[in-house]
Amino acid sequence: MIQKKICMLGGFAVGKTSLVRRFVTNVFSDQYRTTIGVTVERKSLVVDDHDVTLMLWDLYGEDEFQRLRESYLRGSSGYIIVMDGTRQSTLDGALALQQTAARTLGPVPFIAIINKADVRAEWEIDDRSINQLRERGWTVLFGSAKLGQGVDELFTLLATQMLKASPPSGVPS
């Protein structure tokens, strides 16, 4: 069994915890509960015939009052940047967070997901911005924690990329 640490990054109330809970327990709650510090969850899955246990570090949402603690990032094999499609500001925050993570972790796999695809009509983040992100080499997915849309794909894809980036012994890279 391979264990991998993944950090969930993003602004406040973008849906990091909702995505984790949807992925781990397949449950969604409309009630917003802010994460204090960090919550660690675990989810096992099979990727390319390998048992992989993802240790999901659901970090608090960064805002003007509390900045990301880099110590939480250390040791992560990958990370997920979550944005709220209905708030353009979360995209700007995502850019800053990615730079911090890249500085701390180096070139590890990461995936960006724009949450709240269930209310696509209300999105402030437009296609042009998304394309700019993709031009930067980002993998950008759309998803909805509320509907469960794109959640499994998000984590499975990152797990696959992490295994490729850091294969277990005996597996050709």
Partner: peptide
């Protein structure tokens, strides 16, 4: 309970306290 989660939280707590 869940020794894996507890390991992560122990580490997080230490990081938090140190920071």
């Amino acid at each position: 309970q869940d020794e894996h989660v507890l390991s992560g939280m122990l580490t997080a707590i230490q990081n938090y306290a140190r920071d």
